[in-house]
Amino acid sequence: MIVLDRLTKRYGPTVAVDQLSLTVPTGSICALVGASGCGKSTTLRLINRLIEPDGGRVLIEGTDAASLPAVALRRRIGYVIQSIGLFPHWSIARNISTVPELLGWTPARISARVDELLDLVGLDPALYRHRRPHQLSGGQQQRVGVARALAADPDLLLMDEPFGALDPVTRDGLQGALIDIQARTGKTVVIVTHDIDEAIRLASRIAVLDGGRLIQQGTPRELLAHPVNSFVEAFVGGPRRGLRLLQVTPVGERTDYSVDHGDACEPIAADAMLDAALALMVAGGTDRLPVRDQAGRRGTLSLADVVTS
């Protein structure tokens, strides 16, 4: 569990991070979102002490981060940045082994770990191990960036707009990979992004920052359904947030299990989201869909129930 406790950072007269308190449960993905200059990157860099706070504390599993040597702390925390920052003069394998090497792992253990990580991020070790960063595409480089951050098996992964510089298709692939990796490894992830859709897709909790202050935090659904003020409402999409709400609401919640719609068409899964159901309705020219949940229970989803809860 990561606890930010009244964290404050000032640059001269401007307050970059203002009394920010936030809790990130172990094994969850937390997104820090906000406009540029809202203090989200500064907050991230306060966690691994690339920046020292002027006030407040960071507690990592109960230990005050300030009580540890900064260098030792950072070796326990994965760090991924938008501009990737692979070492251009080293092979992919050596890039990934940076932290294990610093920690004094044996070469055999490092080598096995490099292969394991390349597999994890979806790059064939035989093909990519000995390449140089410039021989890889941007998306492949960031896959290596993620592998490098995970090399020493840190419990916490900090990501600063990791997919911001990638094209939409590549970004989509890497977001999928991250969800998959997080599900498999159970890492705690704090990710900074200005893209609300990325936050909705990846994060179990979203914290909205403005002017260095935490404005609202909660699950994507909470934010979309009940923005606390006009700023958060505008940030999550204004009137269009309704469409995003569909992306995070499961079909099962709106299904009437007392009516079996039969097999007029292939039933939709109860854990699919409402946006997929609406798309099927529009495509099929119908206002009703058959639903089946994992237990095999059958029900019906009607357009009226999609729109009103």
């Binding site: 760090y79 920052g85 932290v99 610093l102």
Partner: peptide
């Protein structure tokens, strides 16, 4: 030396001497 490379090195836990010796000087 690209600032991103230095930032990544520092963020991963290289100390200032290691950054100089392993990253900045070779580049």
């Amino acid at each position: 030396v690209p600032p991103a490379v230095i930032d990544a090195a520092r963020g991963m836990g290289l100390d200032e001497r290691q950054i100089l010796r392993r990253v900045s000087i070779p580049l």
